[in-house]
Design a protein around this nucleic acid. Sequence first.
DNA 1: TAGATTGTTAATCGATTAACAATC
DNA 2: TAGATTGTTAATCGATTAACAATC
Lengths: 206, 206
Amino acid sequence: MKKFSKKTINRAFLYIRTLEQLINNKHNLVSSGQLAKLTGLTSTQIRKDISNFGKVGTPGIGYNTEELNEKLELFILQKQVVHIAVFGIGNLGAAILKYPNFQKTKLNIVAGFDNDPKKVGKKFNSIPIHPIVNAPGVIKKTHTDIGIIAVPQKFAQEVADIMVLSGLKGILNFSPTTINVPNDVFVKDIDFTISILSLFCRINLT
Amino acid sequence: MKKFSKKTINRAFLYIRTLEQLINNKHNLVSSGQLAKLTGLTSTQIRKDISNFGKVGTPGIGYNTEELNEKLELFILQKQVVHIAVFGIGNLGAAILKYPNFQKTKLNIVAGFDNDPKKVGKKFNSIPIHPIVNAPGVIKKTHTDIGIIAVPQKFAQEVADIMVLSGLKGILNFSPTTINVPNDVFVKDIDFTISILSLFCRINLT
DNA sequence: TAGATTGTTAATCGATTAACAATC
DNA sequence: TAGATTGTTAATCGATTAACAATC
């Protein structure tokens, strides 16, 4: 399978997201120029990205939205469903369990984990909460693909270790700390504090 | 003021975050090699980044953690406090209002906005919730720097317009849609769906 | 002195952009 | 045919990395 850069993959999903909106609004044609406006990118970059996935447009006309969407999804998702587990059912973890946009997509939260006896055994948005110690078994049984770290900073590494032990290869880390994992495990860090500070910094340097 | 790339700024905050942990643990010296291990970057890149901010290390020895931390903070933050307003007090918005890590830092949420009469007038974590129509006044009075979009997708552009009208120059956008704003307004998009799909895609392309 | 580590230059690598022939 | 737009090549730009003299 051809390798795409992280940036190309991210943009591909941005195109898919935009195309879905266009399809919902009954637009069946779109040009790279229009996509550029809708995504905030340049038309050249969009054409370049799309050409990675094959020839799908018509010169002088543009792209068929449904066709382009299918082509992109086929290449980078292969129509699979992604199974997700959330570690730490605090404010953020609970918000993720209830996040409405996952239900529209191929993303499926299959389990939550927490050590608080008040939460274990309950269901949040019909997702069962297990004790963290049960993670390896539950993850294997549910074929979980991606784990989300929503525990406090000081437990982040511990939870990451359990994830790795359970065989997860993808971790979305919301804790404000770097976690150490083997090379074959991919981590995406989302640190709200850094996101905001970085934004603020860019405003002030202008 | 010298311009730094978005990537450099983000890494600078990662260094600050790491240095703070080291300082808390009473480490007063650190080498670029050790920082590399702690951040997952390379030592060369770290030295290169740090050199943007001036000479602060000692050859053969390393960096004084407190001194380096101060230098970085001085350059990119100038010791300012950042005032934040959250639009949309649903599951995610409420979780952000309660996010514990902001309280440790210079980030200060000053207001929430929602149109639900059950929420307006209440306080979440001692932060008052206002009706969205009051945003321009509240934002000016509280000197808000950054607005966070946590409303459903279909209201995102509308809320972004109000933010721009209110004079905000930085927007953290959690809604899964591209918002259109003037050139002098910076937007950071965090789309949970794209983050997870992109991670999953990278696993599968390996 | 020997070993360690910084700061910096030059080389490499990868990503974006400009330009345009081909096509509808 | 004239106008619009794709797909692609070559040029540019920027970011990362390798290498090493200077320094402690």
